[in-house]
Simulated assay, not measured.
Amino acid sequence: MATARIRSASAPRSGPFARPGLAKRTRVGFWLPPLIAFVIAAVLWQLVALNNPYVIPTLDAIGASLVGDAGMYAANMLVTAQEIVIGAAAGILAGFLLAVVMAEFNIVERAVMPLVVVVMVTPIVAIAPALVVAFGFGMTPKYIVTGLVVFFPMLVNSLAGLREVDGRALDVMRTLHASRWEIFRHLRFPGSMPYFFAGLRIALPLAIVGAAVAEFVAAGQQAGLGSLVTVSAAQANLPVTWASIALLCVMGVVLVSLLAIVRKRVLWWSDGETVAR
């Protein structure tokens, strides 16, 4: 009887409440609608490009530019990727650590949050030139701009997750005289992970936007896909402009896809999606 119960509990769920598995993702009905949408968008793009060659380039012109200057695009993509990795990592880490401090000490939130809001509502394009004056013409201003863009969503989501704890579990741990570290390690930190990943879903695409904007407005090295967009647009080189934009889109899709895979591995116990706040 016990063996039968174990087998029943370990058997995969079926019916309307079953988790979407690999079989669902391989069904034609899963990938066919987006494929049709992309094909329609591509056909419309091509039609508009053929009739308006000075507005947008044709898809074959963009593809030819990507193939013909693959080395140039790869070098600039690596520069942008470096800005995203370093800047976003710093912003994500800073946002989460500050959220931990705020969750533990309310006085820190009351003191710091107004300043954070003031910084975040300041247009980033206005901050970037000042950062160049302060830190020079290297990569540092671009890292800071990228980090600032991702900092606020990570702070807000992480803070919400750290405070969204089960009150009964918190009462039990306090009854057992658990320390702040034990409560954080066993209750607040695991409970904040869905919110943390929800913040990442916002922050990672914003990191690409931040890196591109930093390359637009922060003078210095003329490298990166954002700089390539600016230079090629000034020269009316539409294939290079739109090829660079397409690569930025590809980077965003790759980041979001990798995040989805990591989230599924880390939050294997979570069925639902936490809504970002």
Rank of each mutant, 00 (worst) to 15 (best):
L35R: 08
G71R: 09
S244N: 03
V67P: 02
M102A: 12
I261C: 06
M102C: 15
W181S: 12
I183A: 10
G63T: 04
A18C: 01
P114N: 10
S192G: 03
M173R: 02
A90C: 15
T241H: 07
Y195Q: 07
V253P: 00
A211H: 07
L159S: 03
P153D: 03
N76C: 11
D60H: 12
I245W: 03
L148Q: 06
F184L: 15
A64D: 08
L159D: 01
T241S: 05
W45E: 07
A260M: 01
A218K: 09
A9P: 00
A11L: 12
A2D: 13
A74C: 05
I107V: 09
S14L: 11
V217I: 14
P190Q: 05
R19C: 01
I40K: 04
V125H: 04
K142F: 04
A207W: 04
V101K: 06
E215H: 08
V217W: 13
L206H: 06
V85R: 06
V149T: 13
L155Q: 10
P33V: 07
L148E: 03
E273D: 14
F135M: 12
A37N: 10
R180I: 02
G147I: 05
I56A: 02
R174Y: 03
A169P: 02
G21D: 09
V172H: 02
M1D: 09
R110A: 05
S10Y: 02
M102I: 07
V253R: 01
A81Q: 06
V108G: 00
F196E: 01
A234D: 14
R263L: 01
G272S: 13
F137V: 06
